Simulated assay, not measured.
Amino acid sequence: MICPMCGLVVGDRVIDVGSEWRTFSNEKSTKDNSRVGGPENSLFDGSDMSTMIATGPGSDGLRDQFGKPMYRNRRTMNSSDRALHVAVREIRQMADRLNVPKMLVDRANNLFKQVHEGKSLKGRSSDAIVSACMYLACRQEQVPRTFKEICAVSKTSKKEIGRVFKLILKNLETNVDIIKTGDYMSRFCTLLGLSNLLQKAATHIAKKAQDMDLVPGKSPVSVAAAAIYMASQASDDKKTPKEVSDVTGVAEVTIRLSYKAIIPKAVELFPKDFKFSTPIECLPLN
């Protein structure tokens, strides 16, 4: 390895750490150029590999051209491991669509394995269990996603995911922190392209609205959406209810109703150092 600028020899013995694409199979028709199988997965026991040797005469494909028995590696997987493999693949696909880190995927995999081995949810849809495990993993890793977001990348309904989620909490005897508006605020504001000052103001508005009990019965996501809408309307970077709805997943009607409930107390909700582009008295009433 030589520097192209000055000719300095950086290294004279470089080891290629890439894959060795030679095949050691004695099957002529094979196109598999890998020496080994896939990487070991800690979720499985590692007992899904076996070797089969042809012994009976006339076993086409299991003997070579000289009539000698051939060794063939094959995967023999029971139904339990097969279900785990399918779940792992689905969790990975959901994680790619949700754009979440790998550590969250590992947690969701472990949650599914615990539920699967416990057989406490036998008879429930595998898709619902996978979706509920992904939702629970997001909550436990402090990067929560809404039920609607999970439902959008799942094959099951929001109602079923919520039902299975509660069953998993009960059977695994675990709990999660209560969701707050601040848990979603950073991601929602980033997706809307709002500044840090607007995010800070929206977070303050949502927290004060909940402390003052202005929106009883409303979910934290709905309150966060209304707070973002209010903060944006008071700034130069105004967002419509539809834009906020597209990002948060909250219906426009719900955003307007929540906003209508908190606008009378707008003077008390905004931070004292907030710089208004639109005065409070000029803010829309719905």
Rank of each mutant, 00 (worst) to 15 (best):
F274L: 03
D48N: 02
L104K: 03
A234G: 12
N110Y: 03
V250Y: 09
D106E: 14
T30W: 06
V267Q: 11
N109Q: 15
C3F: 07
H116D: 05
Q142P: 00
N26T: 05
F276W: 05
K207P: 00
V86G: 02
S126D: 12
G58C: 02
I129K: 07
V36H: 08
G58F: 03
F66C: 01
T203N: 15
N26W: 05
T174S: 09
Q114A: 13
K119W: 00
S126Q: 14
T278A: 02
T30Q: 14
D177R: 13
A137K: 12
P216N: 15
S232A: 14
G61W: 04
S235R: 05
I2Q: 10
T30N: 07
D45Y: 12
I91V: 14
V153S: 03
N109A: 13
D183C: 12
F188K: 03
K180Y: 08
K31L: 10
H204G: 07
A201Y: 02
R124W: 10
E281S: 15
F44N: 05
L43A: 06
F276M: 13
D64V: 07
A266W: 02
G118N: 08
G37S: 14
K207E: 11
V14L: 15
P264C: 08
E243H: 02
K102C: 00
R13Y: 05
S235L: 07
M103D: 13
K207W: 01
S131W: 08
S195D: 13
I205N: 06
G249W: 06
G7F: 13
A137M: 08
T254I: 08
V10E: 14
V250W: 08
E40Y: 15
T248I: 02
I129G: 01
E243V: 00
N26F: 07
I178F: 05
V36L: 09
G162W: 03
P216T: 13
I129Y: 01
M52Y: 15
F44H: 08
A234H: 08
I2C: 01
Y229D: 04
V88C: 07
K170Y: 04
V221Q: 06
D237P: 00
C138M: 09
Y135G: 01
L198T: 11
F44T: 05
E149W: 04
R22A: 03
Y71W: 00
R74P: 00
M212W: 03
K155G: 06
G193S: 11
P4T: 04
N196H: 06
G58L: 02
V36Y: 10
C189L: 05
N286L: 13
E160T: 11
C151W: 05
G162V: 04
A137E: 09
P39H: 12
K113I: 01
V36A: 07
A266L: 01
V115T: 10
S157F: 04
P216I: 08
T190I: 00
E173H: 09
Y135M: 14
L84R: 12
A234T: 07
M185I: 15
T174M: 15
G56I: 13
L62P: 00
L111G: 07
V153M: 01
S157H: 05
K119N: 10
R187D: 11
R89G: 07
E141Q: 10
S59G: 05
D177G: 09
K208E: 13
I280A: 11
D273R: 12
F44I: 09
N196E: 09
M52P: 00
L214I: 05
F165W: 11
